[in-house]
Design a binder for these strands. Structure first.
Lengths: 237, 237
DNA sequence: CTCTTATGCCAACGCCATTGACCTTACGCG
DNA sequence: CGCGTAAGGTCAATGGCGTTGGCATAAGAG
């Protein structure tokens, strides 16, 4: 029988750890984010997190059901950061564009964390708020329900998909040991033109890729398509 | 000093394992793919793989430098399957479209494997072949080198990004323990309309989402944009 | 002030990847 | 055909991991 986890808002007794620090969901998640940045996405372990927080690893289980639960909380924190300070203008297209870029940016700002969380459904507060916001923007703009759901799906999927991919290339260099990045200069650049002529001729340009994300362009394409859908039949089923 | 790994094509002595089976890179990767499908993306461990192959886990290190190296090989196998039997027609747009759909399909056919490998650069044979093919299609179509690299990047990124995302939703249900999927019916569906009116009204439609990928639509948008680029200035810098 | 119980701590379990030493047998060579 | 070598399978051990049940203690309700 696993220990029950007390939800953050129900916590009454705040007992300091042996070393005096007072734990909280917030503190744990923030510390985890810092550790992810510093030690890479494989560097987040219960033991190390306990070390960083000056508490026993098992104490974390009073706050999260397990490391997976903590992972979801980290993901939700990223979305929370994306939404912080965001205001709607009332122009659906501009609003969606800004929201997409914000979410993408929030993930890319924490690449190692993004890798862990980008393809998870957290069901937590901030994620719900983001979903609600996207749906409301579309409905208010006049999209029928069915179209709203379609555009919503494409929007969210595309945003998270690019976030994960862009995060992956950013996360790798500092991700301790391996160097997939180096393969671009090692493997790719020294391929013989005889067997791979197209890679050979493009190698110099390929090496400098990954510096700019294709997401903004893809996002604009998606919004174009949505706008076209809207003007075609705003009130149709 | 880690043990040296003999590349597959250099192997001379094929010594059967204690139980009589003869190992090979191919056999190991195929078995790993089967295990991934059956036990989920966390179910692939050296010990279990050894069990399935009737060999000591440490034997695997004669074929791969570590589990990570094996992971890359698995990813390359997926690309290999995508390319198998593929033929070019000479029409760049149709060829790229078919190639994208094939790669996407190959990943989605092995969701658990896709999750592990979609955002890794393997630098192995099949991946190189795919890159070469994409680049050649674009160059042959008349795209200048710079445009070729841009379109190539967007094409690959988008394909892998959607593959990873679509794989994620497919992988979860069977992925042993957790049920993020269930959150769509549990958390989302029972949200009060007071706090999340838009989610509430869309809940029935949202529950049936994830059944169809947004990738084909996104791919067409990308190809549209490329075609426009091409017709605008085929021979310009 | 007392009592309860939330919450931090400890020790232990079973799993994991990886390694170095060992051993056996397939193969290249004469 | 038979020998020597080293490729490649096996064993045992190491250190790290997540997670759990029991215990101790102090925070806060009354």
């Amino acid at each position: 029988m696993p220990k029950p986890v007390v939800p953050e808002e129900k916590r009454r007794r705040r007992r300091p750890t042996r070393s005096g620090t007072v734990l909280s969901e917030r503190l744990i998640v923030d510390t985890a984010l810092r550790m992810l940045r510093e030690h890479g996405s494989a560097g987040l372990t219960a033991r190390r997190l306990g070390l960083a927080l000056d508490c026993d690893p098992s104490t974390l289980y009073r706050y999260f059901r397990g490391m997976d639960d903590l992972t979801l909380a980290i993901g939700d924190a990223l979305i929370g950061r994306a939404l912080r300070g965001w205001r709607r203008t009332g122009q659906w297209r501009a609003d969606l564009r800004a929201l997409g870029l914000r979410i993408h940016a929030a993930y890319v700002a924490h690449p190692q964390a993004a890798l862990l969380t980008a393809n998870r459904v957290t069901g937590r507060a901030h994620e719900l708020a983001a979903d609600e916001a996207v749906l409301d923007i579309l409905r208010t703009a006049g999209f029928p329900l069915a179209d709203t759901v379609r555009v919503y799906q494409a929007f969210i999927d595309q945003t998270l998909a690019f976030a994960a991919l862009d995060a992956a290339s950013l996360a790798l260099p500092s991700d301790s040991l391996r160097a997939d990045e180096a393969k671009w200069s090692s493997t790719y650049a020294r391929l013989p033109a005889a067997t791979h002529p197209r890679i050979a001729e493009a190698a110099p340009l390929l090496a400098t890729r990954m510096l700019t994300s294709a997401y903004p362009a893809a996002l604009d394409l998606l919004l174009d398509s949505a706008a076209h859908q809207l003007s075609a039949g705003p009130e149709a089923g």
